[in-house]
Design a protein around this nucleic acid. Structure first.
Lengths: 101, 101
DNA sequence: TCGATATTTCGCTAATTGTCTATTCATGAA
DNA sequence: TTCATGAATAGACAATTAGCGAAATATCGA
């Protein structure tokens, strides 16, 4: 979970995830969207992989990245719940009076 | 939004938010829950304040911190949406085929 | 095998972050 | 005003991070 939040702390990495929403994309294609060098992007990809937020598979000369939404969802939901934020489902956001301690 | 994610990137700060879920707490009381010095905690509080995740008000000699869930909710929801994660409400998670670019 | 292409790894630097102790500031009480 | 207390600021330090160019690795096609 800490790795997920660390990964999310960088705007470039969050944008990579957004780009990946549209579908799988190669490292080079992804990198082309950002004004930084490819080695720098490669390091960002590694951090996303370590957080388990993306999946990387080789396809010929390219490496294709895919978004792994479930891990992101789990982390966001778990933290939201821990903090009392009832973001999910259809319950009536109990922003006050947490019942347990 | 970047400040929110940066603030969330540190486990101590996330725990502070969780502690604050139970209700307002003073800086000292909060600090007592962690194994780091009070100045260090003060720096964490400053980052949470800058991210607008907490509200600080003085009460006599103490400074009382309060959780501002709305800001957290906005950021989490905005990002979830941007990445195609349909965490909120009761819509049928359109994890595929984003219609706009 | 050779050359081109895609990506990562390897040093390296600069900036940022988390931590500390010591000090300062603000408040309330004597 | 002086003292004690709760909290923030200042300054220093080590560790981490984002960034680079150069080199290494992997794959494909000729």
């Amino acid at each position: 979970m800490n790795r997920v939040f660390k990964a999310l702390a960088d705007p470039t990495r969050r944008q990579v995830l957004q780009l990946l929403r549209r579908g799988p994309m190669s490292a080079g294609e992804l990198a082309a969207h950002f004004p930084v060098s490819k080695p720098t992007m490669s390091a960002h990809f590694a951090i996303l992989r370590e957080a388990n937020l993306v999946d990387a598979t080789r396809d010929g000369k390219s490496i294709i990245y895919r978004l792994k939404l479930s891990v992101l969802e789990d982390a966001l939901l778990a933290f939201s719940g821990a903090v009392g934020l009832n973001i999910a489902s259809d319950s009536p956001s109990p922003t006050k009076e947490p019942s347990h301690d």
